[in-house]
Design a protein around this nucleic acid. Structure first.
Length: 108
DNA sequence: GGTCTGACTAAAT
DNA sequence: GATTTAGCCAGAC
């Protein structure tokens, strides 16, 4: 199943640990759970998890809100981020590098 | 039940 | 340094 290795479980747990006003990346999360190449699956996990996890805090490695396409219209990804203090312009996180939160910190 | 797609990334060229 | 290729693996068709 999707959770055979606890992948989904770990991803959910990690994303939920992302502090408000911070963002992380699919790859970082994938790497943190032991699947450095399964960044795509991270997206699927977030999709399956839905509102269970703050998926709006997860963007691609360039800070682009690639997942915004799959967000509900009444709850735009950019809007949620902005509400948390993350500046978003044209689907891209401003100062992404500065706001980036390394999931490995949570594993310590 | 084989194939394609996809909230992606990293390595190779 | 920009572009291409390969890899990841669960769902949808």
């Amino acid at each position: 199943m999707a959770d055979a290795d606890g992948f989904e479980r770990d991803v959910c747990a990690l994303v939920r640990l992302v502090p408000r006003g911070r963002v992380t990346t699919y790859g970082a999360v994938a790497r943190a759970v032991g699947k450095p190449g399964a960044s795509r699956r991270v997206g699927w996990v977030l999709h399956t998890a839905g509102a269970v996890v703050p998926a709006h805090r997860v963007v691609n490695r360039l800070g682009l809100l690639t997942g915004a396409t799959h967000f509900p219209e009444d709850r735009p990804m950019a809007d949620l981020l902005t509400a948390e203090g993350v500046r978003v312009e044209q689907g891209c996180v401003v100062e992404f590098k500065r706001l980036f939160w390394d999931p490995n910190q949570a594993l310590q």
